[in-house]
Design a protein around this nucleic acid. Structure first.
Lengths: 233, 233
DNA sequence: ATTGCCATTCTTGTATACAAAAAGGCTTGA
DNA sequence: TCAAGCCTTTTTGTATACAAGAATGGCAAT
């Protein structure tokens, strides 16, 4: 049967070829993140098609994907518009991120395997070494790895995926936060608290620790909204 | 300017006309839920186009949307396949739902307005009256309303949306649960506990109460997996 | 008989053509 | 001067045509 053969082929081929539409979606995401397309701006299908030297079809597919991930808003028969989150929505998203990670931490505290804990310690060690080098970009990557391990160790693959999805969405805003002076070492201290709590299998403490780590409060709040353009609306 | 006029029109027009692609997406969702398309089955674009009497274009758009919401899996150049969650994934999703609602409850306990609390009480009252009539379908709707109010009262619109999204995804499975004998009255008792905790502004207690209410444990576990076909793989 | 290769047939992905709807501008009337 | 209605232009939504890749079946070689 055709389907069976297809399934076999799929299982074998993890690196599946990408379609143009997918690439365009990623490129557009980047262009929105880096501000090439401002908030509220309409994304013209024809212009984009020319820009990427493709027809409107893959452009439309890409725009649909961006709609689903919330980067743009699609208004039927009127077009798609860039939709940067405002301060309120951003705080809300960070709050949800903090709570989701808190859940991960709480679950991980009782579910983590010895090997998983070793991975977590290792990831944390790598973060530490980067802090000393004051390399924010590398720290960002290693920090992401640390969090990803935590998601994984929640023992809930669906939760893991949801966390990764939101993490990805918040990435451009999170990155900024690290530039703040002293933030990296503070972040590391928080990591230590999280690891310790998980080591003690104290779910509630771990949850609270990571909630503090992720949530936007105090100085972080100011730095975050300072970054946002005073979007007229 | 064109955009301004578009925005004005959008603000005015809440009931925006839907495109065929959107309708098809909804229809397909229903067909997958009710088992017309079995798990693992390939959805042929041409067949679907004929079925809905449209061209492949809107069908493809609909399929893309279903891909995003996780109902089907799209394998580049090979087609899209129905992807029903297995027992494990289902339990994981319910766990996440329980935790998300727990967050809502905890936040709502301190953020709920007097009017919001009144709405919650009202929704609960309506549930109660339906329980006495033993009307599972209506109970399901009223129950959904109760939960939706809770999401809203978390004071976090993003969280609210995420909850609604997952609730929608779990809908067909949640519905089944209610058919279990005595489940409705048990559900009501749990509602009472939730409302009471929120009334006392006791976030942790409210969170725990709703976690118990939503999570799949004990008998509920058996009933849930009993419903799942022994999917051959 | 089985395995590997090739050709045919289907299916998906992309381009283009066409239809329908909305935006912008113009005219006309007060 | 302003507003309302109509017409033109622009833009989105859908259909169709075409290209590229994958599945299937047959054939040949071992």
């Amino acid at each position: 049967m055709a389907i069976l053969r297809a399934k076999k082929a799929y299982a074998k081929c993890n690196i599946m070829e990408r379609r143009r539409a997918d690439c365009i979606a990623d490129d557009l995401e980047g262009l929105i993140f880096d501000g090439t397309f401002a908030d509220g701006e309409r994304l013209d299908e024809v212009q984009l098609a020319n820009r990427f030297s493709v027809s409107r079809t893959p452009v439309r597919e890409a725009l649909q994907r961006l709609t689903q991930s919330g980067l743009v808003e699609q208004i039927p028969r009127r077009g798609v518009f860039v939709r940067q989150p405002g301060p309120v929505e951003l705080l809300e998203m960070f709050e949800v991120m903090a709570e989701l990670e808190a859940v991960c931490a709480r679950l991980a505290a009782s579910r983590i395997s010895d090997e998983g804990f070793k991975n977590l310690l290792d990831a944390n060690k790598r973060c530490k070494s980067v802090v000393e080098a004051q390399d924010t970009d590398t720290y960002y990557r290693e920090n992401e790895r640390f969090h990803a391990i935590l998601y994984r160790q929640s023992g809930n693959a669906f939760l893991e995926q949801e966390c990764l999805r939101l993490q990805r969405r918040l990435q451009p805003f999170r990155r900024v936060q690290l530039r703040v002076r002293g933030r990296m070492s503070q972040s590391m201290a928080e990591h230590e608290a999280i690891v310790a709590a998980i080591g003690d299998a104290d779910g509630e403490r771990a949850a609270e620790a990571i909630r503090q780590h992720v949530s936007v409060q105090g100085e972080k709040f100011h730095h975050l909204i300072a970054r946002l353009k005073p979007a007229a609306e």
